[in-house]
């Protein structure tokens, strides 16, 4: 094969241009830039739920739906309250009609009446996003629409989400849902707009019994952090390795 000098130069210049073009589209960051981006935060939000104090009024669910503009009559909610009734025959009856939005006012569970003398134990368990340290929902997002902030909150970018629903399937706690109006994935974010202004989340503020409390784990003087670090608390589904940051007092083995 022969090659003239003209042809060789042509090929060489063309080849260089073509190979340089894709490289320029990549972004390379230095170690210092990466460190600056991490910006060690003085805040790590966590949550404490005292299930022994919850009476199942559901005002937290109502407040959450109003505060976060979640369609009130749609069967989706960012936080919900579950009712557990364990009977003497060893069965566990669980319900959460509309996420407990209207409170629990009858002893009917899924149209089944349970006599008080048959009950071994009965209690309510509020649930919300666990703001995991290893959020499974974030790992599966194919477009980078959901992410963890420096203060530990997992957020969804509504402009960037394509509504594929992978994250809804990936969350072991069933926290995520498809927002019927925005057509994107949605989830509890501890009322990020409130806590970043120094307010309490809507569900915490509306709870009359102190069953829900917000904590900053990086602040050793935070009274709620003290409870989490010094008292007996549990998390949901620890075996998944997601490192959830909603801590429960009085969690029962029947709670799933």
């Amino acid at each position: 094969m022969t090659c003239s000098r003209r042809d060789f130069l042509k090929e060489a210049v063309g080849g260089t241009l073509v190979s340089a073009l894709p490289l320029s589209a990549f972004v390379f960051i230095t170690t210092d830039e990466a460190k600056a981006a991490i910006a060690d935060s003085k805040v790590r939000w966590a949550f404490l739920v005292d299930t022994t104090k919850c009476v199942g009024c559901g005002l937290c669910v109502k407040a959450c739906k109003t505060e976060n503009e979640i369609p009130y009559d749609a069967a989706v909610t960012r936080t919900w309250v579950e009712r557990y009734v364990v009977t003497k025959d060893g069965q566990t009856h669980i319900d959460s009609p509309m996420g407990g939005r209207d409170g629990y006012t009858t002893d009917l569970i899924r149209d089944e009446e349970i006599e008080p003398e048959d009950i071994d134990k009965a209690f309510f368990v509020p649930k919300l996003c666990n703001q995991c340290d290893n959020p499974a929902c974030v790992q599966v997002c194919p477009v980078g629409a959901t992410y963890k902030t420096n203060d530990g909150i997992v957020l969804v970018d509504r402009d960037w989400c394509i509504g594929c629903g992978y994250c809804i399937m990936a969350c072991p706690y069933g926290v995520r849902f498809f927002h019927p109006e925005h057509k994107v994935a949605d989830k509890c974010n501890f009322c990020y707009h409130r806590i970043s202004k120094g307010m309490e989340p809507a569900c915490v503020e509306c709870c009359s019994f102190g069953a829900r409390r917000l904590a900053n784990l990086r602040d050793p003087d935070d009274p709620v952090t003290k409870i989490i670090t010094t008292e007996r608390v549990a998390v949901l589904k620890d075996e998944y390795g997601t490192k959830p940051h909603v801590f429960y007092i009085g969690l029962d083995a029947n709670v799933r």
Binding site: P116, K121, F123
Partner: peptide, 13 residues
């Protein structure tokens, strides 16, 4: 009634 409907649940307030 959210709080004041009678429910005989031993493990709650």
């Amino acid at each position: 009634l959210r709080c004041h409907a009678f429910l005989d649940y031993p493990n709650t307030d």
